[in-house]
Amino acid sequence: MTDIPREEYILKCTSACAGCSDSLTLRYVLKAAGPETVLVVPACCTSVIQGIYPQTAMNIPVYNVAFAAAAACASGMSAAFEAAGKKTNVIVYAGDGGTVDIGIQALSGAFERGANFLYICYDNEAYGNTGMQRSGATPAGARTTTTPAGKGQSKKDLDAIVAAHNPPYMATACASYPKDLFSKVQKALSIRGPKFIHVLAPCPPGWRYSSERSIEMGRLAVRSGMWILYEREYGKVTINGPSKAAMIRPIPLEDYLDAQGRFKGICPEAVAMLRSLAERNAKRLKREEEGIC
């Protein structure tokens, strides 16, 4: 079992919402990365929860940058550290809007160039910072302020897009499994080149559940197969334990959906879309893991 350091790199405490899984995710990301790290943060919840000038809760250098610019900024930064002979971890910590929508071009460009940094997308499946507008990562059926009747389209398959760049390491994670998250960040940072971790980040106000259920919500996502924990190292897929178990004996999808206000009154077509997407993903990953694809 991995030993997680006791050090905290966030001083008590950020102004994140009570029960925020972004904060929890960031705790473990920084524990894994350690002090020789710079975080690059585009516009997202994390850019506003650090504190107001001249104070910050972040006890690590954080470069806040424009919405679409994170991956490009990080690629410049890692090149500069390399030019200066420094071994500093550069980590982009971006929300789903800054990743799957406005930031996708910079992400794609940096990954194609083989830039040496870790990109972490914490995904609460909407523009949380501005009050939950739909993003490309919002799942079908979810109500947001710009999809009041529920989103009619599926969640964009970000992982497939990233995988198409053949990065040496990519993984999914969720703060409900902090040790898994911690060791994935550690492993990613031990590898040279572009690395990617996609973290599901349940959001109490956005998903409309009460704050104490954040950890449970991540677990429900994994157990229902709506979120699959896996790694892809140099192209080789490993499905992680909790998702392996879920593939054998998943809980009903409704257990996940019914727990969240955003899916209240979801139409059967959207449920079918969610179900078929989950099944398709599981099938594809299983085949990849077995080397059939």
């Binding site: 610019a69 490009a72 410049g76 890692s78 090149a79 071009q105 910079a106």
Partner: peptide, 24 residues
């Protein structure tokens, strides 16, 4: 120099910003 053949001008300036803030 580290030459970064970026995919757009927006990224060109963003990469210069990320590099410059390290002091180079």
């Amino acid at each position: 120099s580290q030459y970064i053949p970026v995919e757009s001008e927006h990224s060109a300036m963003a990469a210069c910003i990320g590099a410059s803030i390290t002091g180079v």
